[in-house]
Amino acid sequence: MESKEARGVREIESRHQALGLAGEHLLEMYYYMALARALDERMWVLQRAGKVPFVISGQGHEGAQAGVMYAIDRDLDWFVPYYRSVCAVLMKGMTPRELMLSLFAKAEDPSSGGRQMPGHYGHPRYKILSTSSPVGTQYPHAVGIAYAAKVRKTGEICVVSIGDGGTSQGDWHEALNFASIHRCPVVFVVENNGYAISVPQELQMAVRDIAVRAQGYGIPGYTVDGSDVLAVYAVAKEAVERARRGEGPSLVECKVVRLTAHSSDDRQEKYRPVEELEAIRSVDPLVVFRHYLERAGIMDEAKYTEIHTRIREEVDDATTYAELAPYPDPLTATRHVYFEENGE
């Protein structure tokens, strides 16, 4: 007779297998989530140590990002990020060194050459569009990218991310409206962590689930537990396939937790109850996913150590590399205002 434990493993296995995912796929997702977290934590340490002036990041959002990015064609498709997209841009191809170069504002930073604050990702080679600080402006950009993909028949789709606060912007609405009219191949992702800096969701909107707004645009809307990587993957896959088939956009709302303050300039203890901050630790996507991988027999202690040793080396390497890298020369500050005939 099968033991209770063995039956549990079988049930768990059937969950990812039903999605067409093998153990190695899950380990890849886990690796990126853990890498994002380790880099993110290091960034905060560097900020607190006075090495860099500012950090804004995505601790608690990694599961949602890994689930979404695993569902796209990471070479072919476009991604329009926002400032919490640490895990997503890593999965799209950016390296730990590249992220650290941006944190330290060094000349070699591929996102902006040290011109923008950290967290403003962009990388043409990986089809990550450059982003700004005004919230919501990226949504129409994603629609334009997707429209162009449709007209040019490139087969690309575009994924765009935003937080719950950003959904209050007119650009957010205008983008969903435009994209649904023209059935643009775009997946609208909202990483809903319940707070726009300090403003809780109930003061941001009168609905509990942002995804219900999809109905207003005649497109599918999904609300999914962002700490459950596989659940996010399943929903994102559906949205991506729909976009790829030319049937138009979808709205995917991932309920996530914000484990850190909004940024290094914020102190969330001021406006979030201590009990809440303790409770969200239990749905940390990294903890949840690790537990799943262990129960499914995909990751044991040795595997865990192997992955985390590799990550620590990468984060150390990235930190050292970026810290030693040169700053941009002020003489270059007037460049790239307009196209340069002989520009790089």
Partner: peptide
């Protein structure tokens, strides 16, 4: 497809055009 009657929303007329320009069109 190339001559688009857009919704009455100027921010997205420009915002969508910016995305088009990023992905190879000349809007």
């Amino acid at each position: 497809e190339r001559v688009i009657d857009t919704p009455l929303a100027e921010s997205s007329i420009v915002g969508v055009a910016i995305g088009m320009a990023a992905n190879g069109l000349l809007p």
